[in-house]
Write a protein that binds this DNA or RNA. Structure first.
Lengths: 111, 111
DNA sequence: CTGAAATGACCGATGTAGCGGTCTCAAAGA
DNA sequence: TCTTTGAGACCGCTACATCGGTCATTTCAG
């Protein structure tokens, strides 16, 4: 019952690699060892190694936490811009129907 | 031995919220239901719900995969810019020492 | 209006990620 | 040089995330 041979798109793999590299770079620029950073984030050193390697199966919260602690930008240049951006998306979401209706499932196969 | 009451920084929480909202918005703009997108990504609907809610403990690979499938930008405007950016960081990393040496652990507490 | 469908919430089983440990190797500092 | 220590790799245990259901509620299309 293994069957966890999940595949990831190229974009996902590269985005993960980028995040991992950014974390490693920021860590070294701040002269922190793996053990240092791991302790700061509150995770095991082995887990940090997986994050820096860009492994897909780490918890997103742990990876983001490491990035945030080092000042690696997450989606926006400045953390202070995150909240407004969330609000902006909420506004756009409010304009859309809350539940999406498939227009007609047999739009094409009803002949 | 539970004690997994992990805390996350404000930045992490907001970044997760932003990613989740962006995914939900993109999904609705493309008129896809939760079940649709989950099937496409190859995950359970319940997992997608956690991702859209911005839960910290989901696998980063699954969240990125959903975003990538919808065209939600991950760190760069265009997916094609990911690889060059990774290379750029690799170059910068090559200039730094491979192992970071704490200069002197008691830089501050040696008096 | 009305009912089919989408969403939100919840749950038990099970595969697995994180932990923390060890060992080896490399490299940086004295 | 030599030796300390950061980093890479691996491993077993355990808590927990994912899965895939169910049920209730909301909501849009006809």
């Amino acid at each position: 019952m293994a069957e966890h041979v999940r595949t990831y798109s190229r974009t996902t793999r590269e985005a993960l690699a980028l995040l991992g590299r950014a974390i490693r770079l920021a860590r070294k620029q701040r002269k922190m060892t793996e053990a240092d950073l791991a302790a700061r984030v509150g995770i095991a050193r082995s887990t940090l190694q997986l994050i820096e390697k860009g492994q897909p199966r780490v918890e997103i919260g742990l990876a983001f936490e490491a990035a945030a602690l080092l000042g690696v930008p997450l989606f926006v240049d400045e953390p202070s811009r995150l909240a407004p951006e969330v609000s902006r998306l909420d506004d756009k979401l409010a304009l859309l129907p809350q539940s999406i209706r498939r227009p007609r499932k047999e739009t094409r196969d009803d002949f």
